[in-house]
Amino acid sequence: MADLTAIILTRNEEDYIAECIESIKPVAKKIVVVDSFSDDKTVSIAQEAGAEVHQHEFYNYAKQYMYAVEIADVKTTWILRIDADERLTKESAAELEKLCNENENTDVSGIVLRFYNMFLGKPMMHGGMYPWKKLSVYKAGIGNIEDRNMDEHIILKSGTTVEAKNDSKHLAFRGLTFFTNKCNWYSTREAMDYFEQKNVSTENADFKTRLKMKVYYKLPLGFRSWLYYAYRYYIRLGFLDGKEGQIFAFLHAYWYRFLVDAKIYEHEKMGTEFKPTGALK
């Protein structure tokens, strides 16, 4: 076991939370769940699985996570940020334990985990979506989360990172209805982020944010979603994932990315105000 506290944010995750907790139990000394007032059995299942559970009103992931770190009163060396639909495998859990224990007293402050995405029952191994890498583990007091509405990342104050070699699982797909609703929910938050960052310096932002603000959003509306699809499906070989890969790339480009653009256009033309979306239901 590593000297590690795991933090999970939840909202109606009764079908996912138990397996998530079980996957991190061999590694984490403490597991803290912060729930956005689920109306299913998420809270009771998490408690029965051995997690410490708190409830807090949701505004966005960044603020919810900052609250979770505060309420967790972390005493361990490391913190693991993991979603309810993410899983450590037996191999990735053993590797994470080893990396944490080996680097307690080194200049390594963060550990990047790698995931594969499941979509329509198939792992997406092409299209630039694999491996999906995320700085998920960091030393307490050294990492902060970006205060953004969407696509927030852990930023380290100091130190270096190491990258895990074993894959973990990301089980974000729960049917096409849920997937498209989730994209709609996320698109509002990304459009809000666009306007918040439009006139703000991106000097200290991560590479992905700088690329979006300095290059992607400078392209014409409509063209950029087409370019995104061509990049994912053709250039990054998304077609090798079969029909599932085509649907995955198409929905990401022409539903999610184009919907973000449409909401930006709507706001600029109609002056409509964005309202807090609350937690994803």
Rank of each mutant, 00 (worst) to 15 (best):
A2K: 03
D3K: 10
L4F: 03
A6T: 10
I8V: 15
I8Y: 04
N12E: 12
N12S: 08
E13I: 02
D15A: 14
A18N: 09
E19N: 12
S23C: 08
K25Y: 02
I31C: 07
S38D: 04
S38R: 01
D39S: 12
K41V: 00
V43L: 07
A46K: 02
Q47E: 15
E48R: 13
A49S: 14
G50Y: 11
G50Q: 10
E52I: 15
V53G: 03
H56S: 08
F58S: 01
A62L: 07
Q64V: 00
Y67D: 11
I71K: 14
T76C: 04
T76A: 05
I79C: 02
L80K: 04
L80M: 12
A84V: 06
D85R: 02
L88H: 03
L88S: 08
E91A: 13
S92P: 11
L99C: 00
C100P: 03
N103G: 05
N105F: 09
V108D: 01
G110Y: 02
V112M: 10
V112S: 02
L113R: 07
F115H: 00
Y116M: 00
M118T: 11
F119C: 08
G128P: 00
Y130A: 04
P131F: 01
W132Y: 12
L135C: 05
S136F: 00
V137C: 05
Y138I: 00
K139Y: 04
I142F: 03
G143E: 04
E146T: 15
R148E: 13
M150K: 05
M150S: 15
L156A: 01
K157I: 04
V162D: 02
H170K: 03
R174T: 11
G175V: 12
T177I: 13
F178D: 15
F179C: 04
S187M: 08
T188S: 09
R189T: 01
E190H: 13
D193L: 10
K198H: 02
N199V: 05
T202P: 00
D206K: 05
R210F: 04
L211G: 04
K212Y: 11
M213V: 02
M213K: 08
K218H: 12
G222M: 10
F223S: 09
R224A: 04
S225M: 12
W226Y: 14
L227W: 11
R232W: 13
R232G: 07
K243A: 09
E244D: 15
F250G: 01
H252D: 11
F258W: 13
F258R: 14
L259P: 03
K263W: 08
K263A: 11
I264N: 07
E266L: 14
H267L: 07
H267T: 12
E273N: 10
L280Q: 05
